[in-house]
Structure formats: C-alpha cells, structure tokens
Design a protein around this nucleic acid. Structure first.
Length: 564
RNA sequence: GUGCCCGUGGCGCAACGGUAGCGCAAGGGACUUUUAAUCCCUGGGUUGUGGGUUCGAAUCCCACCGGGCACACCA
C-alpha cells in the first residue's frame, strides 16, 4: 500500500519557468507512467519505486505526447501529468508570474450564495462580496459568464471587459472550472433574467490542479464517489443534501433527548472487555500498557454503570465497531444512540422510540409520513405492539408454544429454517422470526417479548421466566432499534453471562465475555430502568430515501488501493 | 466467504474477433447578455493487471486486483 513514486509530489510541485515543454524533446525518465484513473492502481510501477533520482536525465523524444510531460519539484521526484493537469499547472505558473497568488487567504464575504439567492430581488443592485468554486465558464469575447457554487447553490458571475478593465479581465483566461475565487461587484439580473453578480474585481483563492468530472452527467462511478467523496460532494448536490439531513437528524435526536432531561455522556470506545451486544469485536493493542483492547461493540454496559452511579437519564451518540460483513445495511463502524432511564421500563422506551422517530422525521423530512424506495411509511405514534410468538404464528403459521426443544427444531426445519443442533425452543423462535417474519414487517411495529436465550441483558417477563421484557421496532423489514427493561439482578446476570461464556467456549465468537466489573456494579444496586438503542444510519437511510448505508456514511469502508 | 454483473482518455458513454470512437472537459482562434452558449482548428487511450487462444483480442478463455448487487452474518 506504500505510495508509489509520483504520489505526494502533486501537493508541492514546483514548475520552474521553461522547464515545461510541450512536445518534441520532452524530458522524461524511464519511469512508467503512473495511471491514476479508476481501476488503475499502479501495479505496473512497482519496478520503479526505488531511487528515482538515479534515473533522471534520460532524454526521450516523444512528440505528440503532452500527457507524458514530467516536471521536477526539486526533491528528485517527479510526477506524470495528464494534459489537463499540465495545463492547470502552467496557468498557476503564469498567474504567479503575473503577480496573482494562486492560493489566497482570508476573504471577507457579505453573503453566502444561498443567502444571496434567498432574497435576491430585494438585494438587487447592491454591492456584494461572495466566494465559491467555479462550476462552469462561458467565455464570449469581451464578456464572460461563470457559475459560482457555494453552499450547494450557484449564482452566475457576469464579467464584462469594459467594467473590469482589460487587465483584470484578461487574467480570467488563467481560471479553470474548479478554481475557488472571491469576487466583488453588484447584484443584477441579465437580459435573460438570470440572478447574477456583475463582477468588478476578483481574487483567486485556490487554484484547482485537477479537473472536475463532466458537467451534466457528473460523477457516477460509485467506487470513485465513495473513495473521493470530496469530489462527489462538489458535483452531486443530492449527496450534500443527504449529509445535511444526517446532521439535522443527529441534532434532532440530541435535542429530543435533552429536552426530556437526558444527559449526554461519553463512554470508552477502547474496551478491555467488549460487551452489550452479541458481535465479533475488532482487537487493537495498547503499547504502553502492553495489552490488547477491543473496539466497543456497544456502550450499554458502561451506560448502565452510570445508572448505578446515580445518573438517572443518560444517552450517548457514537460509533460502534463490529468485525463483520459489509453490505448495503452494514458498515463495520456505525452510529448508534443508546438511552437509559431509571425507574422506567420497556413500555416507556417504546413510547420514547416512536415519539423520537416521528419527531426526527418531522424535523428532517418535514413529516412523520415518509416514502422509502417507493413505499409509504407512516411513523405517526402509536405503533402496534405484537408479541414475537404471535408474529411467528401470524406470518409463519407456526405455533411453538408447548413444544419441546426438539419438536421446535423439527418444526423449524420443516419450514426450511436451519437451526443449530442443540437449539432451545426460544432460540428456534427467534431464528424462525428472523427468517420468516422480519421481511413482512414494512410499516412500523414493535415486536415484544423476546426469548431469554437471545436476550442476556434483559429483565425476565413477570409470569414468564423464559421470555424477556424486550422489544425491537421493525420498519421496511429492518430492525431499527432494540430496547428492554434492564436486568438489574446481579445473580441472574451472572448466570446469564455464565451461559454466554459456555457458548463462547463452544465456539460462538459473538457470545458475551464475563464482565466482573459490570457485575460488581450491579451488586452495588442498579435502579430498575428501561434502555434503548437506535441505529442512526438506518434511520437516516429511511429519512433520506437512501438504498445503501454507504449513501449515508461520508467515508464508507473500502478496500485500500495502491494509488488513486 | 459464495454466486451473478462490471472495469475503455480527466468525467459520462460507444465499439463486443478485423484501423479504439463520441460528448463534455482541455489547448489555439472568433465572438460584449450567455446559461448543455455557438462556430473553426488541435492534442489526449500499451481498453484494471498478468497470462493464454487466434493470422489478428477492448471483445473469447484463465488467474489476480478493485467495485456493485444478491445471499450468508449482523444493527
């Protein structure tokens, strides 16, 4: 993964005057050209990674191949450029020579572009200073039109030679699409009615050395979109909107909980013992302590320690890390919000959940009724409650009550659901539910009463010790949250951990480890409480109508590439 | 991890055994109310990588790399 030569040079390329030659005799080493487009990852250049300086000075006659121009940056390294990159570097040099610094500094703006456009007609014919990225340039002799993008919106720049003077106007020739400029002038509408700034003067704030993707098809290659999200954000306005919506959703969650008296806290991401969920953790190492640590898979056990400590209403918004597969609904690190309320129970948390979803949807999407991939979803509370056994009876036509473990396993197999050899009835129930019922749960519904086997941290249901007072809301067939009345009996909790440890020993890598400190905390006494965890990414997917979790994560995990 | 599909100039796409092409973008020129500006000219690709089949490979075959989707696992 080490960067091949040529990488890193681009940041600090110096183009000495006259070193740049167009065609004919082009100075070039015997380096292979480093391909940089999609699917190029510099494998062909491995042979040239050592001591570049030694290979200099080879004169290669290569007429007609501007793209192979090379340049020195004074460090004995060099970069091969595309014709467009070469042209931009050349303009950068010419600007410098003309006394125009290609990278400016502070620029005082009177308005952002969205501010200007919002109330344009009232602001017309006033002096303004705006800044942004050039998205298109239409040169027309003594008149040049350009589109300036800022804050996701564009305003037209209207540049007239007569207004600006020939020198200022002439320097426009060294600007490219993608450059960031600050301009000052007067707001006006053109003959065609386009909201514009008549430019009196301008300043180059940043010269862009790489060209932006094509102007109306934009950047479509999803791999490039994820790997180079910065480009995606520049050219695809919808992407920007999604991440603004995500930010608003997180703010709305925080506001909703804070307004109800919940205290936001932060607990460790580096855990000596990972807990709070059944999942495989990432392992990392602390050098000074010389010990392995785990990236947290859930903050649950820490938040419950806070209940012990007397914080009655707490929440945390943050990342969980799970060493599992990647899919359109799974990213190895994802954002969750967990909420704990002392003296409450699962019923209270269900009410909190449905209210929170409706509130956040209204804040982000404008309504508790949303459309996801063509399906109308009504998040208005209250959502129906349906016991897992009833759900399995209704959607799978399966009645497991009263069956022995073996009979239950047989029943599941007859329905085509694979279950582990020694699975108990409760495990079978959960398995059948996942496979046969979940896909049917499109509109919001709370599934309640989960088997104890799959709920090692939840309180038993009064009157049915095989079940727990747990719930999970489903939308679009996805589990979007998980909550329960928290188990606060340390003796019961120890037994549950013990079962988990046994399963772990039997090869279940996702089973809990024994957490003695957590048990000690419970032994000091944790108030009865309701707890809740919500998958924020999936919530945002729903609210932004995004088909993949990668569409709501700015930098989704990707396999690294040599050089891109 | 398995299956299916994809990888062609900076970007979006064509060519699907027979000379690698188009649009935008880029370079040169004309143009003082355009907005996918227009018009003339020009350059840019060892078709993801490596093998193979063939007189001939972007195209067919194999392996590898990267990606998408579905399944599996999970939230």
């Amino acid at each position: 993964m080490g960067p091949p030569q040529g990488f890193g040079v681009r940041r600090r390329v110096r183009v000495p005057g006259g070193r740049f030659r167009r065609s004919g005799s082009v100075q070039q080493s015997n380096f292979q050209r480093v391909p940089r487009g999609p699917g190029h990852h510099g494998q062909g250049s491995r042979d040239s990674s050592g001591s570049p300086g030694a290979r200099w000075g080879v004169e290669v006659s290569d007429p007609g191949s501007e793209a192979r121009m090379t340049l020195e940056d004074g460090s004995g390294r060099q970069a091969d450029l595309t014709d467009q990159e070469a042209a931009r570097l050349d303009k950068r040099r010419r600007l410098l020579e003309a006394g125009v610094p290609p990278y400016g500094g502070r620029f005082e703006r009177t308005h952002t572009v969205p501010e200007l456009l919002k109330d344009f007609d009232r602001l017309i014919d006033t002096p303004v200073r705006v800044a942004g990225r050039l998205r298109s340039i239409r040169r027309q002799g003594g008149l040049t039109f350009a589109d300036l993008q800022d804050g996701g919106q564009r305003i037209q720049l209207f540049c007239r030679k007569d207004t600006m003077g020939p020198e200022t106007y002439g320097l426009l020739d060294w600007l490219d699409i993608g450059d960031i400029v600050g301009v000052w002038g007067r707001t006006m509408r053109t003959r065609r009615g386009e909201a514009s700034v008549e430019v009196h003067g301008w300043e180059l704030l940043t010269k862009a050395l790489r060209p932006l993707p094509e102007k109306w098809h934009g950047l479509k290659d999803v791999e490039l979109r994820y790997r180079q999200r910065y480009v995606d954000l520049i050219v695809n306005p919808r992407v920007r909107d999604v991440f603004v919506a995500r930010s608003r959703a997180v703010s709305a969650i925080r506001r909703f909980l804070q307004d109800r008296g919940f205290l936001e806290v932060e607990t460790p991401m580096l855990n000596p013992i990972p807990g709070g969920a059944n999942a495989r953790p990432f392992i990392t190492h602390h050098n000074a302590l010389d010990m392995d640590l785990y990236m947290r898979i859930a903050p649950e056990l820490y938040l419950k320690r806070l209940l012990v400590g007397g914080f009655d209403k707490v929440f945390e918004i943050g990342k969980n890390f799970r060493n599992e597969g990647i899919s359109t609904k799974h990213n190895p690190e994802y954002t969750a919000v967990e909420v704990y309320e002392a003296y409450a129970d699962a019923r209270d948390m269900m009410r909190l959940t449905e209210e929170l979803f409706a509130y956040v949807a209204a804040e982000v999407a404008g309504s508790p009724v949303i459309t996801y991939q063509g399906t109308r979803i009504d998040l208005t509370p209250p959502w129906p409650r349906l016991a897992m056994t009833e759900a399995v009876a209704r959607y799978a036509g399966l009645e497991l009550d009263g069956l022995s473990d073996e009979q239950a396993r047989e029943a599941a197999k007859r329905r085509g659901v694979d279950v582990p050899a020694g699975a108990t009835r409760g495990t079978v129930l959960a398995e059948v539910f996942e496979k046969l019922v979940e896909p049917h749960l499109i509109q919001p519904v709370f599934i309640v009463d989960y088997p104890i086997e799959v709920s090692p941290l939840a309180k038993r249901k009064t009157g049915d010790p095989a079940m727990t007072d747990r719930f999970e809301p489903f939308i679009m067939g996805w589990e979007v949250a998980n909550g329960f009345s928290e188990l606060n009996d340390p003796v019961d909790q120890r037994e549950r951990f013990q079962r988990q440890v046994e399963q772990r020993a039997a090869g279940d890598e996702e089973a809990h480890m024994m957490d003695e400190d957590f048990l000690r905390a419970l032994e000091y006494g944790m108030p009865p409480a309701g707890g809740l965890g919500i998958g924020v990414d999936r919530l945002v997917m729903l609210l932004t109508d995004s088909p993949s979790i990668r569409d709501v994560i700015l930098f989704p995990h990707m396999r690294p590439r040599g050089s891109v």
